[in-house]
Amino acid sequence: MQNEILFATLALVAIVSSIVMISAHRPIDSALSFIVTLISIAALFALVNATFLFVVQIIIYAGAILSLILFIIMFLNIKDENLPDEKYKNRWLLATSIIIAPFSAILIDLIMRSDIAVNGVASEGFGTIKDVGLNLFSKWVLPFELVSILLLVALVGAVTLSKRSE
């Protein structure tokens, strides 16, 4: 019961903050509310015993990526007058929401109707760094290696694109 209440609260926070994120005029506001979303998601992770992922989420997302965004916002020194004048923002938001509603509804309906839950009993140490690490390096070693290459690509790309051309 406690979990349900917690979940409901966190879910509400996540949804509200994400709505604020997409509707805030200034990017800095968006970023800040996005942090709230991320943290509430991290909390949701923790709620289901994914402790390692909870940490990762906080560190990487709320920490690294968001600081990066904030850094970029600062770095580019985007002033308010540089911001796009989004006259029809609310209309767009409304229209898109209406358009996507069937999609969400259908997916939710399908999820409701399907028999996915197995209610497995978590063993000791589930979701800890060891558990995840073992899994990562036994079953998922190939994706792991590939991701490293992906990061390398991104790195090369970022460097190539960001450096001033000579």
Partner: peptide
């Protein structure tokens, strides 16, 4: 795996 491979290829191509 396919997705990561796809991303590797796609990202390279994006760049």
């Amino acid at each position: 795996t396919a997705f990561i491979a796809l991303e590797i290829a796609s990202m390279s191509v994006y760049i």
